[in-house]
Design a binder for these strands. Structure first.
Length: 296
DNA sequence: TTGTGATGGGGAC
DNA sequence: TCCCCCTCACAAT
């Protein structure tokens, strides 16, 4: 269920502890047995995140593409980095999905796979188990490029000005509501339902505004704000979309997800700015939260 | 103990 | 627009 920030953190974990290593690849659950056979014993040579997509490159031009979808998660064990920043303390087990959950040491390495593990990637010192992904497949370089070509810009991948220009151009040609466009991964990569609602509130933008009617300067600010939120999400390991908080309120927000957002998951609760009850409605099948007073 | 919803998205219609 | 994928946290019972 992760949005873009989690996938970047997962990619970094692989970059730190798998890239450069030979990897034993298996599918304990069996559903990826053929794919695992094609990767087994090869060296991992690169780890990249683009939006919610993870691409792991192995020797002989073979790529593993993983998309976690709503349920997916990676469980790391062995030698790894707790918060995916260089030099951070090592922990023994870490579940990486939208949230990160350090778990007690299993006692042996590698720990036996628990439940339906689609893929196990094992080096001498670290193991990563994938469960519940929407996508998990072996691709050629051309196939990887075809996937990337369909993705909108990612602030942590694309050149800032080029990414901004691509985002603005994609939105300005469409009559689709901006609240739907922000979730469209071909328009911009990595935004999910939480960041969508929060970006729109922070811009005080009505989600129903057709893309082509959003002033260009507002779109540029949206892109820059997405850059800020994504960097912060990668740094903190969670989605923190409030701002202007004093130190105590900031700490409380980090501790409790209910205090972390302006409008997300706050249907019927008073707007934190004006007190108007937050509205929830379905947009393209997903729950959209906004303040009908501040966002117009 | 059971039920429900969730931070996604592809495909059928 | 709906269904399905296939997992888990948390609420309801």
């Amino acid at each position: 269920m992760p949005e873009g920030h989690s996938v970047h953190r997962i990619a970094r974990q692989f970059a730190l502890h798998f890239v450069g290593h030979e990897v034993a690849v298996s599918s304990p659950q069996g559903r990826f047995a053929e794919g695992a056979k094609r990767l087994d014993g090869r060296r991992m040579t690169d780890s990249r995140a683009i939006g919610k997509q993870l691409f792991l490159e192995f020797s002989d031009d073979r790529w593993l593409r993983v998309h976690l979808g709503i349920y997916g998660a990676w469980d790391f064990a062995g030698e790894l980095t707790a918060d995916a920043s260089i030099g951070a303390p090592r922990v023994t087990r870490l579940r990486m999905s939208e949230q990160e959950k350090p778990e007690p040491d299993a006692g042996q390495f590698p720990p036996p796979p628990v439940g339906a593990v689609r893929v196990r990637l094992l080096t001498e010192r670290t193991v990563a188990d994938l469960r519940g992904p929407t996508a998990c497949e072996v691709l050629t370089p051309d196939e990887v490029q075809a996937v990337i070509d369909r993705l909108g810009p990612d602030p942590l991948v694309d050149d800032p000005e080029a990414g901004e220009a691509r985002f603005v151009a994609a939105v300005r040609t469409k009559s689709t509501p901006i609240g739907v466009l922000l979730m469209d991964q071909s328009v911009v990569s990595g935004i999910g339902n939480v960041y969508r609602a929060e970006l729109l509130f922070r811009a005080r933008l009505d989600p129903h505004t057709p893309g082509r009617n959003v002033p260009e300067e507002v779109l540029r600010e949206l892109w820059r704000d997405w850059t800020v939120l994504l960097r912060e999400g990668v740094r903190l390991g969670q989605m923190m979309t409030m701002d202007g908080l004093d130190e105590e309120a900031y700490r409380a927000a980090l501790a409790d997800r209910a205090d972390r957002h302006w409008v997300y998951h706050r249907a019927g609760l008073p707007c934190r700015v004006c007190g108007t009850p937050i509205v929830m409605e379905l947009a393209a099948g997903r729950k959209l939260y906004y303040c009908p007073t501040d966002q117009r």
